[in-house]
Design a protein around this nucleic acid. Sequence first.
DNA 1: AGGAAGATCTACT
DNA 2: GTAGATCTTCCTA
Length: 190
Amino acid sequence: MKTLSKDFYERNPASVAKDLLGKVLARRVDSEVLSGKIVETEAYYGGNDPASRAYRGKKKFNALMFMSVGKTFIYMVHANWLLNIVAHPKDGVGAVLIRAVEPIEGIETMRNNRNVKRLRDLTNGPGKLTKALAVTKELNGIDVTERDSQIVVVEGREESFEVCSSHRIGVKVDLPQKLRFFIEGNKFVS
DNA sequence: AGGAAGATCTACT
DNA sequence: GTAGATCTTCCTA
């Protein structure tokens, strides 16, 4: 399994968000691997983006968004952890929110973490997938390009799919651009 | 020390 | 489809 390079994340957040679709998010817990295909993402910018945590300047808790790309940026909203990956051009600010994945490995463990009946409900939302993959703030700031990390992003299978975009979800004040990307027709898109 | 807000989830109708 | 509940962080007094 090959992780994506740093260069991949050192680009416009919207491009990274789009290209992350179809890639595989893998979470290592002890010796077990939980993984899923990324099917839905959103791009967030910095100071100009009212929906971004980086809006109104750099703070202690969002410092990661200003720094090295390819790291996780995890934080809590509405009693749920949200998983982002820092991505932006050199000296920029931004991150990509992982909104949904399609379970591949470790489905039984995910079910234990989530306690839901339908497979569809396992990971079809930002807070759901973090719970299924046992992601908490403990994992904030780890490098997803290091193959030994507890969370990595690796190349998925070669396959073709339609990428669609729309406005972002749950955001009060959105930007004019469409910054949400998802795989057309996938059942795990929220 | 206290309060408000926030990129959501779940259950119920 | 809609309402209510959730928890952590940050900001102000």
